[in-house]
Simulated assay, not measured.
Amino acid sequence: MTSLLGLSTYAYFWRMSDRVPDPMSLDDAMRDAAAHDGVDLFQICDHLPLDTASDDRLAAIRALADELGLALEVGTRGTAPEHLARYLHVAQALGATLVRSMWTSGDDQPDALETERRLRRALPAYEAAGVTLALETYEVVATEDLVAVVRAVGSDHLGICLDPANTVARLEHPADVVTAAAPYTRNWHVKDSGFTRSPGWVGFQYTGVRTGTGLLDYDAVRAAIDPDARGINRVIEFWLPWQDETLGSTGDPAQTTTRIEAAWTEHTIEYIRSKES
């Protein structure tokens, strides 16, 4: 099986945001991703225009990806069957074989029984299309509950998008999350994070950090999920804080933030390649 290295729209979070003077479009981000040696995948994750994109627009995105040599994946939030059906259509239009979603979406927070019911309703179409639905680990849902629902449904086209950084806010240890989720993992969000003391030593801040300097045990996660053998794609994303004067930055915050985001992208690609050479 083939495991691809990819970039998420979350790796372009600030460069695509309205906080910068000339934000990247989705097409700009895809072109930038393809320019990085070793990047063969782009995950369009939580990109709201996909919710209502016309088939012509989806065809144009796919054509650009084909031109750039990028495989595509898509990401959304929620388990409402109608919404999952929409994103199956999006995935098929883009030639994507994986949709990442989350158990909840805003005020829509179903319990485990309702989530299982929804998934059983939505999954036959995913199975028929050969598309995998991967639900992400995150702080709103206990990893134990997420694993239990995935196991109960028991579909080869339902799994987990592993992101152990998210669940720290639930006081779950990343290593425990990896162990529990590993057998069901179908997608891996690679990002590093860490704690720093808040100003005045009152509490902590938990944010993204440069890959390899925080809590991420890349080698341990890779060993646990064996992405190459199982065809689990690795998708790079960041939790880069906005760089303003409170962080000791000088100069233009937008310019500083986007420069660091681009530098983190380069560094993380090289970090991963160095681990696997």
Rank of each mutant, 00 (worst) to 15 (best):
W239M: 05
A96N: 06
V74C: 14
R15M: 13
N187W: 08
V141N: 12
L158Q: 08
L133M: 08
E172A: 02
H189T: 10
I236L: 08
A148P: 00
A229N: 01
G95Y: 01
P164I: 02
A128I: 01
A96F: 10
R151H: 13
V74W: 04
E261F: 07
H36P: 12
L171E: 11
L133F: 05
R19F: 12
E144C: 06
S54C: 03
N187Y: 14
G130Y: 00
G248W: 00
E237H: 01
A182Y: 10
L216G: 05
L158G: 02
T132F: 09
A181Y: 08
R259D: 12
R230M: 05
L113R: 13
I236H: 02
R62E: 06
Q243T: 04
A65R: 00
W264I: 05
D107I: 03
G208C: 02
T79D: 11
F238K: 03
S54A: 03
H83A: 03
G130T: 04
L247T: 09
L70E: 07
R151I: 08
A181L: 05
E139F: 03
R100C: 08
T250H: 01
E266D: 15
L135F: 04
L64I: 04
P49H: 10
V99T: 07
R259C: 00
D192K: 06
M1V: 12
R118H: 13
D40H: 09
V140P: 05
Y138L: 14
Q255K: 09
R234V: 04
D108Q: 15
L158V: 10
T179G: 03
W103P: 09
V221A: 14
L7T: 08
A34R: 03
H47V: 04
G231Q: 04
P49R: 09
R222L: 11
N166R: 08
N233H: 13
D18A: 13
P164R: 10
M102N: 14
D37F: 01
D108W: 06
F13P: 00
I236Y: 00
D46Q: 05
W242I: 05
L158M: 11
A165M: 05
I232A: 10
D40R: 14
T250W: 10
A263E: 15
A35D: 03
P110D: 09
T257L: 00
R62P: 04
Q205F: 08
P49S: 06
H267Y: 11
R77F: 03
G78I: 07
D32I: 08
R210W: 02
D32R: 10
A125I: 06
D228Q: 13
Y87C: 07
S25I: 07
R234E: 14
T211V: 15
F204M: 12
G95Q: 01
D55S: 15
R100S: 06
A181V: 05
A112H: 04
C161T: 12
G130C: 01
V177Y: 11
G251N: 07
